[in-house]
Amino acid sequence: MLPEIPATFCFILSGILFTIGAVGAILRRNVIVVFMCIELMLNAVNLVFIAAANALSSMDGSIFVFFIMTVAAVEAAVGLAIFVMVFRQRNTVDPYEIDLLKG
């Protein structure tokens, strides 16, 4: 049987990836890249689920990650549809320029 990887390693990697995603989501000025950064943050969370489930020899982590992936796929479909629609109206993908909700 293969030896275990310490869960702490995975948690540290996940923390770093989550931070990179969060900072990218704040600083980038292209909604699609911001969206990709959010996907990266979701992936970091998935990694914590898998690592903890592996350390506790449970299968629930895989189930939760499965549902997170489902939600991420739906989010990608709807979010990108919204980006296409906004681009048609405003001709930009800069999040600072998109103010369609401003009264």
């Binding site: 702490t8 923390g15 770093i16 931070t19 900072v23």
Partner: peptide, 22 residues
């Protein structure tokens, strides 16, 4: 964020019970 996450990763205690799916 990085400090918080790394502190959490270093000082956490795995408190759950082991499951049946080893």
């Amino acid at each position: 964020l990085l400090a918080e996450l790394l502190l959490g990763a270093f000082f956490y205690q795995m408190s759950g019970r082991s499951g049946e799916y080893s």
